Amino acid sequence: MRMPFVFLAASLLFAATARAEISLNTLLDPIRTKHALPSLAAAVVKDGKLVAVGAVGVRVAGTTIPVTVDDRYHLGSDTKAMTATLAAMMVEEGKLSWNSTIGEVLGSDLPNLRPKFAAITLKELLSHTSGIPTDNEEIGKLYFSADAYEHTLKDWRLHMIDAWGSKHDPSFPASGKFQYSNLGYITAGAMIEKAADKPWERLMYERIYEPLGLATAGLGAQATFGLYDAPVGHRIEADGKITPMAWGESADLPASLGPAGLAHMSIKDFATWAGWIAGGGKRGPALVTPETLKILEAPAVSMEIKNPKPGTPKSGAYALGWGLSKFNWTEKPILTHNGSNGLNFASIAVDPDHDLAIVVTSNIGGQKVDEATLEVMKALYEEFEK
């Protein structure tokens, strides 16, 4: 795999001077075909510049509608780093601190929280050390409750926090243990909303999407209702067949889960976000200071997950919205995260030491796309980290 890509990159370097970036399609299409994916997209930012990008395959399995580099892809839990960045903005503005507790921020709205739950801090929520468990049947019933449609997203988030936190203590008594928790990020999102006095959704647009110029960025299912204007997610059936899940409630997780993972955007805009992170916050816009960004990226807890599902960090350490993992093709741990709503997949790898960012997306979930993504990441990192 290594030698053909080296040849590809070298053969295209001269042509790329006229086009501004190298096309990755020749690399991506054999990998997409090998793993039987509807589509596959990737982009590389080096020293703040988009140097390579590509998108191959179709928006909907069984059709001939090709994907493009401007198509919107679902990012899943890669949204968590954006939520953590919003929290950092609130800390810089003095509206929250890393040690602000759920009770201090939300106690007036949720007076019945159990004391140990109310004592969980913002930093513990963002680092998955809060003791709030990974999604289970009881939490799932809160996410998918029909009652949610009778409330605003802000109010339903508060309801879910109250429903859990008034009945359950953290599953371990103090921070220091990693336990991946979407409900923890929903809770952090509610704390951000309270501090900013604005919905999390508006903050995403006003404080991240618009300053970075992410024109394709949005929230929820990526295709416009009734149109195939983006790569739609695909469900893998028990017999291995795939079913397009284009629109409506089945096309994404409930909207109240936004802070945990409902962003979407093109591979190029995803790369812009990743490139901003790779630059250490020293290139504009000034979302947060470089010093604060270092806090977000500092290891907070070690993590070892057996048989990880696609969309969750695998091993290494977890910071605030970021995993830190050492691959067999990196010298040391780099910032990374996967995201999946079960129908789509997105992965990000950032190496600030080399000012390098790589993003990969697909419109299907599962083990095959996880393997394909790692194959793409390895080839691109080895080519561009120099």
Rank of each mutant, 00 (worst) to 15 (best):
E193W: 12
N344I: 00
D29F: 07
D47S: 10
S171L: 08
Q222W: 04
W273C: 06
G339C: 11
A379I: 04
F172C: 08
M3E: 15
Y381N: 00
I120T: 11
T373L: 06
D162T: 06
L24V: 05
T83V: 04
G62C: 03
K378I: 04
L12W: 09
K95P: 09
W329T: 08
A190K: 02
E124V: 03
A163D: 15
L374N: 12
E92V: 00
V376R: 01
E291R: 05
I334M: 07
A20L: 02
H128K: 02
K306I: 09
M1T: 01
F327N: 01
V58C: 05
T292I: 09
L126I: 06
Q222A: 09
L75R: 08
Y209H: 13
M191H: 03
K177L: 05
E93A: 06
R202K: 13
Y149V: 07
L183G: 11
D269G: 10
L8M: 01
I364N: 02
E210W: 15
S181L: 11
G342D: 15
D252Y: 04
A349Q: 04
A346N: 00
N341M: 12
I295Q: 12
I208T: 08
A148H: 06
H151E: 03
L13W: 12
S171I: 08
L96R: 07
D351F: 05
V53N: 06
V376W: 00
I305A: 11
P211S: 05
P115R: 03
P111A: 08
D169P: 09
K386M: 13
N112Y: 15
L212Y: 14
G176M: 01
E93V: 02
P313T: 03
A223E: 12
